[in-house]
Every structure is written in C-alpha cells, then in structure tokens.
Amino acid sequence: ENLWTTASTFIVLFLLSLFYSTTVTLFKVK
C-alpha cells in the first residue's frame, strides 16, 4: 500500500502542476 500511496501522491502533484502551468499560460496569452 505504501507504493500505491506514493504513486497516488505523485499523480496528484503532477496534475496540480499541469493545471497550474496551463492557467499561467492562459493568463500570459491574455
């Protein structure tokens, strides 16, 4: 379960960073 928890945390952080960079890009375009 420890490995699954680590993987889940990594996926969440990846999605958050992806969402953040997408938002920054949209604001830069405007």
Rank of each mutant, 00 (worst) to 15 (best):
I11K: 04
T5P: 08
A7C: 14
S8M: 13
L15K: 01
K30A: 09
F14P: 04
T6R: 03
K28H: 07
N2K: 07
E1G: 07
T9C: 14
T22A: 14
L16N: 04
K30L: 13
V12S: 07
F14N: 04
V24C: 07
F14R: 01
F10Q: 03
I11V: 12
V29W: 09
S8E: 14
T9N: 06
F19V: 15
T5H: 11
S21V: 08
S17I: 11
V24M: 08
L3T: 14
T23K: 03
V12R: 00
V24A: 05
L26I: 11
I11D: 05
W4G: 13
V12Q: 03
L26A: 09
E1T: 08
L18Y: 00
L3V: 13
L13W: 04
T6F: 11
T5D: 13
T22K: 04
I11A: 11
L15N: 09
N2I: 08
T6Q: 09
T5M: 12
N2A: 15
S17Y: 04
E1S: 09
A7M: 12
A7L: 11
L13H: 01
W4T: 12
I11H: 03
W4Q: 15
F19K: 03
L13Q: 01
F14Y: 12
L3W: 07
T25V: 12
T6W: 04
V29A: 08
T25H: 02
T6P: 06
I11L: 09
K28W: 12
L18G: 01
S8H: 15
T23L: 14
N2T: 14
K30T: 10
A7D: 09
L3K: 07
L15V: 14
V29G: 06
L15C: 10
S21H: 02
T23R: 02
L3A: 14
I11E: 00
V12W: 09
T5G: 11
S21C: 12
K28Y: 08
F10I: 05
L16R: 01
F14G: 03
L13S: 03
L13T: 03
T5N: 12
V12D: 00
T25G: 00
W4E: 13
N2R: 08
V12I: 13
N2W: 09
L26E: 00
L15H: 03
Y20I: 03
K28F: 10
Y20K: 03
K28T: 07
S17M: 15
W4V: 11
L16K: 00
F10N: 00
K30N: 10
T25L: 12
S17F: 03
N2G: 12
Y20W: 10
E1P: 05
K30H: 10
W4H: 15
W4D: 14
L26C: 09
L26S: 04
K30M: 10
F10S: 09
S17C: 12
L26Y: 11
T5S: 13
A7W: 05
L18M: 06
T22V: 15
S8A: 14
S8D: 10
L15D: 03
L16C: 11
I11Q: 10
L15W: 10
Y20H: 06
S8V: 15
S21P: 04
T25F: 08
S17Q: 07
V29P: 04
T6G: 06
